[in-house]
């Protein structure tokens, strides 16, 4: 299920889980809960400071000029 959630399941496993999900409400509930947790992790997206971003871009441009 975790491989499936993180899209590491191969075609056969994906097919198997998709089939199992159709007939198993408990499995669907489990997957929904894990999906919710996974999505919530995306909420923890921090932004670097504009200064850091500018420093990186300056370096990238500096190399381009040479």
């Amino acid at each position: 299920m975790i491989r499936f959630l993180y899209q590491e399941a191969n075609k056969d496993l994906t097919k198997e889980i998709n089939k199992a999900l159709l007939g198993d409400a408990e499995l669907r509930a489990q997957l929904a809960e894990m999906k919710s947790s996974k999505k919530s992790l995306d909420a923890v997206q921090l932004e670097p400071s504009p200064e850091s971003v500018l420093n990186i871009l300056s370096y990238a441009r500096g190399l381009q000029e040479h």
Binding site: M1, I2, L5, E33, M34, S36, S37, K38, K39, S40, L41, D42, A43, Q45
Partner: peptide, 23 residues
């Protein structure tokens, strides 16, 4: 698996909801 399950339990306990429209 346990990390995601535990996280979910903690979210419920702490009343944290994921809002897809917000993120």
């Amino acid at each position: 698996r346990y990390a995601l399950i535990n996280l979910r339990k903690k979210m419920i306990k702490n009343n944290i909801a994921y809002d897809e429209n917000f993120y």
